Simulated scan of single mutants.
Amino acid sequence: MADLILHHYPNSPFSEKVRLILGYKKLAWKSVVIPAIMPKPDVQALTGGYRKTPFMQVGADIYCDSALICDVLEHLQPAPTLYPEPGKGLARTLAQWADETLFWTAMAHNLGPKGAAHMFAGAPPEAAQAFAEDRKAMRIGIPRMRPQDAAASYKSYLRRLSDMLDEQPFLLGQAPCIADFSAYHPLWFTKVRTPVVADILAHTPAVLEWMDRMAAIGSGTMEKFSAAQAIAEAAATEPMAVGHGLLRDSTFQDEHGIALGSRVTITAESFGPEPTEGELIAATRTHYTLSRRDERAGKLHVHFPRIGYVLKKAEA
């Protein structure tokens, strides 16, 4: 199998989630650092439009969204598992809450005036403005919380996490699972990237101790790689056949009346409005796969989770 290539940047919370999982599963990976804001021509050469961070590349297969990346890594390296039995449904549900509700609450607190000033200290004023405009363009259907309201909710969520840690080292037991990695990354941003507002964590010492246990996992064995090298690797590789790659399920599940082979677009439903267009070659109970071609990267298969993404026929 081709190497694991993670396209990410250091400050990205969802990238930290995936980096830790790579470390937990003791996987070697190549690191392509991508821009935090648009334009992202090398990213979109591979994804066809999708511009959220991170995404993972294996040869000419592109896996979008950290939730799908986690499933791919679990298939590649089943032990230690992210989805322990019994209770994997609970772990996935808690992870989804963390990636959505907890994340946006934490980030509204983190990037309030004080936190934002710390993040962009020493940078020219236009850098902060460019970041704000970029993220504003990405937000669709996500209400913006005021920092005061976010702080109140964040404190409540931290207390709930603390309660889960009363008699066990991780949220759902003796070992970390997908819920831990998803709950950790927005708190990591608070502590590491906006420490001027991290005093909110001090009220829940059990959470801080859990964060130390999570941070100790590390991020595995990383090798630096360039975007040009990643695109060249995609161009030199054939995508894996549907049902024979890292997403083994190929059973067609039709919820839209759109046949395989149709020209379609896939778009995130709430954050990142850029569509990816291609030929629909898989629509299973968990994921979609599009086949597309790029003049630099060649033929590609681009994979998305079903949850959180909108499938439509492409306009003629």
Rank of each mutant, 00 (worst) to 15 (best):
I69T: 05
H75C: 10
A183Q: 05
K26S: 11
F103Q: 05
F170K: 03
H287G: 03
A150H: 03
I69G: 00
I200S: 12
A230Y: 00
L158N: 00
I5H: 00
P10Y: 02
I142R: 15
S31Q: 09
A183P: 02
Q168C: 07
I266H: 07
F55V: 14
G261Y: 11
F252K: 07
L300I: 09
A127L: 10
E167T: 10
D166E: 13
L94Y: 03
V192N: 13
P195C: 05
P273V: 12
Y24A: 05
V196L: 13
M38R: 15
P169I: 09
A108R: 03
S219H: 10
S12G: 13
A175D: 04
D149F: 05
I69S: 04
Y83L: 14
V310S: 10
D149V: 12
V207S: 02
I281W: 08
D254G: 04
Y288E: 09
A236M: 06
D180R: 00
D249K: 09
I178P: 00
A283Y: 01
Q129D: 12
L311G: 06
R293W: 10
G141L: 08
K26P: 00
S66F: 06
T105S: 11
T276G: 06
T105L: 04
A128W: 09
Q253D: 13
T105A: 06
A241C: 06
Y83I: 02
A241K: 13
T237A: 15
P275F: 03
D212C: 06
D149R: 12
A116R: 14
T204I: 02
I217M: 00
T81S: 15
T276K: 04
G87F: 10
L171W: 02
L165M: 02
L208G: 00
S153Y: 02
L73K: 02
I200F: 05
F225L: 08
K17A: 12
W188G: 01
P239E: 06
L246H: 07
I37N: 11
E277Q: 14
L201I: 10
V43L: 09
P84T: 03
Y184A: 04
T101Y: 04
L171P: 03
L82Y: 06
T204H: 01
S270Y: 08
L246Q: 11
P147A: 11
P78K: 08
T286N: 12
R159W: 08
P275Y: 09
G243W: 14
W104A: 00
W97E: 12
A268N: 12
D294L: 03
R296T: 13
I37R: 12
T237Y: 09
A283D: 07
P113L: 08
E74I: 05
A45S: 15
W29F: 04
M240Q: 15
H256Y: 09
G308L: 10
H303P: 03
D42P: 06
Q77F: 00
Q174N: 14
M145S: 12
L158R: 03
T93K: 05
R92A: 11
S182K: 01
T105R: 02
T53D: 07
I258Y: 07
E238L: 13
T194A: 14
